[in-house]
Design a protein around this nucleic acid. Structure first.
Length: 440
RNA sequence: GCCCCCAUCGACUAGCGGCCUAGGUCACGGCCCUUUCAAGGCCGUAGCGCGGGUUCGAAUCCCGCUGGGGGCACCA
């Protein structure tokens, strides 16, 4: 009965669409050109990308602009840089909503001619059915049904001739042959509108999948005050793309009850929309840190070294890159983010000013250590360790007691990489300088 | 106000009627290891929002409530 009503997408029609399912998958990522990719949006893009790759389909990148500002080009560039950094590649050229301006206008005129839309004070408004209901089967949420009386006639073309989002977006989905629209849950209420537009256009609506939003720790929408929220924030903090991808994939999706660490390839192989959680998730920075640490520790040393060099270069450090590379093994098990490197290893690159209060009463050990270290040959971690352990034993000091003052004197901190490796890297000359400075 | 969506440990989640005295990961606590910090090993604390149904049996199905989120633009 109500299946016969104008705007309905009912079960039988859905069945007809099932036969089209074998078509290859084509999805799109559709950021606004604000320049900064929000981490929630990035997660949605990731799902699109994983879904497309999983099914051997295509993933398009469409910038949803409606304005012609110059900043759009820059923002678009920045978005592409960010996605490349993450390792999410799109297929085909980047497109802009603006490119379809004339086509949208023509389609709007056509809808008016066909009676599906009408002029209203210079704008063009789409006529929504005023009885019956609209339903669709969301790939994540299941069946969603809305009473048509709650949907108002929609402006599709502004009086200045520009299409609105709810018109341009479905038109482009249609023109681009999009088979699956995977987007944020904030679009749920737009979907019935777009389905009506599409049907009036004579197009078969794609499948829809609404993925939950990401909230901050307080359960509210993620915003600046929650810390890092743009992809660039995470990049600056020193997260590895692989770790971020793994972590983000697990926000709202899971493979099974046990698997946590998954490579890009494994994610692609295993991803499916029907295992996407319908409920919103909260970003847990601590777990992200942990996971990033896992990836840092798993990195071959030369790759970690290069990652550090690249990161420090990007962040504007002018530290000796060869020394940075040599420091990589000392920090691999100590840092969770590349951004922790500077504080942790600063003593290798800059002078230190130890807190004298921490060195109270340790003059003798510092002097004795300097004496021994003057002789150690070669000045390498192992002989250094042997010499200092011998010294501690002779002074009847526990290693803990004996080494901590040396650490403070040489690294300027009570927390540092392994002491002996640090001394080696610093070099005899600077070690002796710092020991005598602190011991006098 | 109206419409829609959501609801398992603090967080991410497994669970799709009996395998659950609810499993895993992070975090947290304890112990071990130990030159600091980490890393690692072992152990542990902690959860099905509430109320009704359905059923021999409910975290799982249905209804209501409560709570949270999103939307109701000539924004996207």
């Amino acid at each position: 009965m109500d299946a016969a009503r104008g705007g309905d997408v009912r079960a039988e029609e859905h069945g007809a669409r099932l036969t089209l399912r074998r078509m290859s998958v084509r999805v799109r990522m559709a950021p606004s050109p604000t320049g900064f990719l929000h981490i929630g949006g990035v997660r949605t893009f990731l799902f699109n990308w994983l879904f497309a790759r999983r099914h051997g389909g295509e993933c398009l990148l469409r910038i949803e602009n409606t304005d012609t500002g110059r900043e759009v080009a820059e923002a678009a560039q920045q978005i592409q840089d960010s996605l490349r950094w993450l390792g999410i590649e799109w297929d085909g050229p980047v497109t802009f909503q603006l490119d379809r301006l004339e086509r949208c206008q023509a389609e709007a005129r056509r809808l008016v001619a066909e009676g599906a839309a009408y002029e209203d004070e210079g704008a063009i408004r789409f006529r929504m059915p005023d009885e019956g209901s609209t339903a669709y089967d969301d790939l994540v949420l299941g069946r969603i049904e809305v009473d048509n009386r709650t949907i108002e006639d929609l402006v599709i073309l502004r009086s200045d001739g520009r299409p609105t989002y709810n018109f341009a977006s479905p038109v482009e989905d249609w023109l681009d042959g999009i088979t699956h629209v995977v987007r944020g849950a904030d679009h749920i209420s737009n979907t019935p509108k777009q389905i009506h537009v599409l049907r009036a256009l004579g197009a078969e609506p794609p499948q829809y999948a609404h993925v939950p939003n990401i909230n901050g720790a307080d359960g509210k929408k993620l915003s600046k005050r929650h810390g890092a929220t743009s992809l660039d924030d995470f990049r600056h903090a020193g997260y590895l793309p692989e770790a971020l991808v793994n972590f983000l994939a697990l926000l709202g999706w899971s493979f099974d009850d046990k698997t946590t660490i998954m490579s890009r390839g494994e994610l692609i192989e295993r991803f499916s929309l029907d295992r996407v959680q319908p409920s919103p998730a909260t970003l847990d920075y601590q777990k992200l840190d942990w996971m990033n640490g896992v990836y840092i520790r798993a990195l071959p040393l030369d790759e970690l070294a290069e990652a550090l060099v690249r990161y420090l270069r990007e962040e504007g450090y002018d530290w000796d890159e060869e020394l940075v590379r040599r420091a990589a093994p000392l920090v691999q098990e100590k840092i969770k983010r590349l951004g922790e490197f500077p504080d942790f290893a600063r003593f290798l690159f800059e002078d230190v000013e130890p807190d004298t209060a921490l060195l109270d009463g340790s003059r003798p050990i510092l002097r004795a250590a300097a004496e021994r270290l003057r002789e150690v040959e070669p000045f390498r971690a192992e002989p250094i360790e042997q010499a200092l352990r011998d010294l501690a034993a002779e002074l009847d000091l526990s290693p803990r007691k004996a080494f901590q003052p040396i650490r403070v004197a040489v690294t300027g901190s009570t927390v540092s990489p392994g002491l002996f490796e640090s001394l080696e890297l610093l070099g005899r000359e600077r070690v002796l300088e710092r020991l005598s400075a602190a011991g006098s």
